[in-house]
Design a protein around this nucleic acid. Sequence first.
DNA 1: CATCCTGTGAAACATTTGTTGCAATACGCG
DNA 2: CGCGTATTGCAACAAATGTTTCACAGGATG
Lengths: 295, 295
Amino acid sequence: MLQQDALRDRIVARFDEMSPQLQQAARYILENTQEVALVSMRELARNAGVQPATMTRLAKFLDLSGYEDIRAHFSEALRLRADGFAARAREREGEQGQAGSGLAHDMLQSLSAQIARLSEPEALARLEGAADLLGQARRVYVLGLRSCHSVAWHFHYVMTLLGDRTVHLDGPAGTGADGLLWAGPEDVLLVISISPYAVQSLELSALAREKGLSVVAITDSEVSPLIAISDQVILCSTESRTFFHTLTPALAVSEVLCGLMAARDREGSLKALQAADQHLATLDIYANTIPRRRI
Amino acid sequence: MLQQDALRDRIVARFDEMSPQLQQAARYILENTQEVALVSMRELARNAGVQPATMTRLAKFLDLSGYEDIRAHFSEALRLRADGFAARAREREGEQGQAGSGLAHDMLQSLSAQIARLSEPEALARLEGAADLLGQARRVYVLGLRSCHSVAWHFHYVMTLLGDRTVHLDGPAGTGADGLLWAGPEDVLLVISISPYAVQSLELSALAREKGLSVVAITDSEVSPLIAISDQVILCSTESRTFFHTLTPALAVSEVLCGLMAARDREGSLKALQAADQHLATLDIYANTIPRRRI
DNA sequence: CATCCTGTGAAACATTTGTTGCAATACGCG
DNA sequence: CGCGTATTGCAACAAATGTTTCACAGGATG
């Protein structure tokens, strides 16, 4: 256990002052950390050869309000560890009076973990597979509606800098779907959709499939309706402590896909980017200082 | 998840036969596996937005004797997973040297770290400050062009679900800027811009400032031109191992801002979201299965 | 239209949980 | 030995858990 663990340290530090029974309980906890999170206090006490009350007393002895605090602590530790998340101690010591003051911190930690989880071997394999498919396509149609628009658009935008192979299936006046008109079996549809799934995204994906396109899906669950009709699926978490779903992991996925595709053809990508740079330069799109006002 | 997981597979396999409520429960379990082991059934049900009884019913549906079987299974999985963690970490170190194929892994690790860095005290303080300012505004104008469009739009989209205070400064036919016409000192401009900075973003921000608006900026550097004209600045890294900049941290920031603002007024937010849900439901925007084709 | 059926929410249920008060015990010290 | 203190076990407690039951709503079927 690499991470700093305040509670664990406290137990060790005060171990000598404890009564024999408390020591027995404490010893068992130290040696079976994860059990604390996984079983009830009574069962833990049973396994430790100790009375249930002793666990409560141990908690009080450690200046905690009750056994629940012990469990909460080790639960959190286990959560983080199972996340495969590089140990980052959560110091909850100073809970500010403000409601939701720790929210930002929690959200960011959680996002960081969710993205880290994407770098597990299985997810990586899926990313590679998807990049393969997208890389071979004659044209890549990108579809993401409502909340997923941001991801779809960003993917399209980046790919635009690398060439003109991508088509964004969106547009004013509901003409988005028209883009599929000339699509065929050599093409690929990249669809991003999370629960609740926009009907139109599902319909268009099904249509694309019928037209013979391959389908790559970025979605949120193994039971997403997109799974059935997709050749490659990338799953990303959307859980958030807020009222809404997060799209940050999905965006990360789309950026990785762009990165992988660009890496397949370094030469071409560089040349394309130079062309894009030049194009944008002649249009005076960018600046580094606040421009004086043209009146 | 490398290991075979019979129960998980069974859930996925029989998902289609489930009733909507069962599906919702099953979906949550699939996406939050570890929570099953760590919290009580009732709490799990609460988080999944489902009645406690539904969890029991799900267990029965899966031919188990009760919910306890589900928990036992995922507990065991988590136990194994946590045990295997040390080994896996060592594996990960070994993989580092690989070229090309490690790109995805590197990118994700790096993104994870960048976001984690945002939860440092100073960044958190800035986030709180920005949320304060945005929360007090009569109206929030959101501006993000080119690559930053995705972030701006996502912020606007989420805030739309919470009310009608935000105005997205973008639109077809170059009319985006017109939105500022009626803006005044009680309003706030949220501008997202990273290097290279779009001229128009800078111009509009300067204009907003002249009209008396407060300015909150999400940008990438302490020497960003936006710093000079902003009341609150949130810095986020855009470094990436690819040819392009990453916007994932910026998106994370925007989601945190949304989260903070929603948390200030839980009541109002919940009510607004319910209204939005109802609105979208009556429009039949969403579905959970691929719709049969309307011919 | 009546009828069945399935899916759902709410309430009641027995059980288990974590906690606490109290008596029994062990132990140190004069 | 006697006494006081600290530790322990036990039993009772309220709160929660997981389960079951029942009634109702909505859709299909005859």
